[in-house]
Amino acid sequence: MRQPVNTLSNLGFVGVGLLVAARAGREGGLGTGTLALRPGLATAYACVVVLLGPASMAMHATESSLGGHLDLASMYLIAGFAVAYAAMRRWHRGPAFLAATYAAVVLACELVGLLGEVPWLGHMGNVAFGTCLAAALWLESRVARAGAVALDVRWAWAAAGSILVALAIWTTAKDGSPLCLPGSLYQGHGVWHLLCAVSAWCLFRLYVSERPVGRTSLSPSAAARRPG
């Protein structure tokens, strides 16, 4: 491993993905909202979060071009899911709409990533990733304000806050920055990975907090019996 700390810190994504899967497999673990009705989406989210780990490991362990592409692709997949899942609920559509939106967002990110480098953020793929996350949170705010469901928005703030702190730390660890210390156990990029994993968990908790307003909620036991 060319970057041991930055490689191994990606186990945080694997751990969070497994936590999501464990909660999804527990009776009542998906609340009474959309995930309870469609638990297969929770499984998909768990898989995407886990994938972030080995995909980013590929880049930091090898420092190869292929590893870099895998890393960016996994970022697009998680951001694309966040946008598509929020859009599906915002416009009261089904899984087919989610799949089409998901594919379109990931493709758009890949195309934006081809535009090359930009100041500060380094790669246009990072711009696409950040834009998607901002769009997802904005759509989640629209879902909450529509009034059909209630969301515990504290988890949205926690997800956004974790990413912003992670970004600030990532900035201090870029090449040439004061805290870029290749030989140190402390790696700002590794902290970025761990905080992004925390953000992924907070986003899942936001999804689980969803509950219908003004109609009978799906009971946890009934939700557990619904097909994915």
Rank of each mutant, 00 (worst) to 15 (best):
A58D: 00
C132D: 03
V198R: 07
I169Q: 08
P119T: 03
V165H: 03
G176V: 09
L137G: 07
F129K: 12
T216V: 13
D71E: 09
A150W: 15
E140Q: 06
A21T: 02
V165S: 08
T34N: 01
L185W: 14
A200P: 05
S184L: 03
C196W: 04
M124P: 00
G122Q: 09
A86S: 13
L114N: 00
M1E: 02
G188I: 13
F13R: 11
A79I: 11
L107D: 06
V198W: 11
A82Q: 07
A128K: 02
A84M: 08
R205L: 04
A55I: 11
L66D: 09
L11Q: 05
A79F: 13
C180R: 15
S9I: 12
R154K: 07
S141K: 14
G214E: 00
A96W: 02
P95R: 13
G28T: 10
A150R: 15
G122R: 10
L70N: 06
H193K: 14
L19R: 13
L179D: 06
A58I: 09
A223L: 14
M1Y: 03
G31L: 15
C132M: 14
A158G: 03
A96Y: 00
L206E: 11
A99D: 09
A36M: 07
G183F: 00
S64T: 15
W170A: 05
L98P: 06
R89L: 08
M88S: 01
A84R: 07
L139K: 04
A135C: 13
T172N: 11
G15P: 01
T7W: 10
A58R: 09
Q187N: 03
G33Y: 05
W155Q: 09
G40K: 00
S219N: 11
G214A: 04
V16S: 01
R226G: 08
V16G: 01
S184K: 10
G94K: 11
M1Q: 03
C180H: 15
G116C: 09
G176H: 05
C109R: 09
N6E: 13
I163A: 08
L72E: 07
V112M: 12
S64I: 09
A87T: 10
V48K: 02
G183A: 12
S141G: 01
R215G: 06
V105C: 04
A197I: 10
V106R: 14
R38L: 08
L41I: 07
A99Q: 05
G40T: 00
L98I: 00
L66K: 13
T62A: 06
A82K: 01
L203H: 15
P54S: 12
H60D: 01
F13Y: 13
G31K: 14
A144W: 08
G53C: 07
N6S: 12
Q3F: 02
P95M: 09
L181P: 06
T32K: 06
A22I: 11
T131N: 05
R154G: 03
S162N: 14
V5R: 11
S209R: 13
G190W: 00
L70V: 06
L137C: 08
R23E: 02
A108T: 15
R38G: 01
C202P: 01
L111F: 12
Y85W: 08
S177T: 09
